[in-house]
Design a protein around this nucleic acid. Sequence first.
DNA 1: ATTGAGACCTGTCGGC
DNA 2: TGCCGACAGGTCTCAA
Length: 260
Amino acid sequence: MTGARFTHVTVRRPDLRIPFPRRFAARLTGETVVALIRRAKYLAAELSSQGTLLMHLGMSGSFRVERPGAGKTRKPRAEGKHDHVVFEMSNGAVVTFTDPRRFGFMDLLTPKQLAAHPVFSTLGPEPLSDAFDGDSLALACQGKKTSLKAALLDQRVVAGLGNIYVVEALHRAGLSPMRPASILATASGKPRPSAHRLAKEIKQVLLEAIERKRNPSYRANRFRVYDREDEPCLRRGCGGRIQRRTQAGRSTFYCASCQR
DNA sequence: ATTGAGACCTGTCGGC
DNA sequence: TGCCGACAGGTCTCAA
């Protein structure tokens, strides 16, 4: 999409989580994508003159990119039941947004709206950036009464972690999801060793996930705790069993014997 | 100001 | 096979 122009935009189902802005398709058509970026779990296309197209996949969303072959007759695309938006680009690419649960959304924001966006503007650091480390994590959690689990799911603390990788990172770091987030720092705000461990494992678990997605032959173990209730803990020499409980409405999986 | 619960919507899976 | 409830990797809103 980068550098390409929207030649045709179809909204087949306008009622996603957030209603589309007025004249969405019309405003997008003719715009060129200056840059395509990701921030937290948001995708953003910076447009040549209409601001930013902000997109989110929700729980079940995905994009499909097709190139109806140059030269061949352009066949009408068989539209799936949950194909809600279709972008036809000037370079021939057809980008389709599919989302069965319709928790995803698309929005068009002016630079001013983007800067004032209640979520986008308050996002914490990108976990893989240098701005995120044990120090910044401890600082963000200083004095927090919530659990570590809830704190890591809070996008203002660190951006882009979901339920699975929060649970995985806590297991790797040997920290109980139920501990208060404040334990990562001393009363005076100094990071404890656990903060550095946790920040390191967050980066590690994400890097491995990305690698696994990119390289199918990289068969590193799937999840170590997520969705493994009653199965043995995989930490060497632990011997515990994975337990499950609900925290903040989400499933938490953990090993009570090695996560303290 | 924080925090947990409920809501949003559809699909899938296991049990009966 | 069919029905039913539980559950799903995200985020918002509301009430306490």
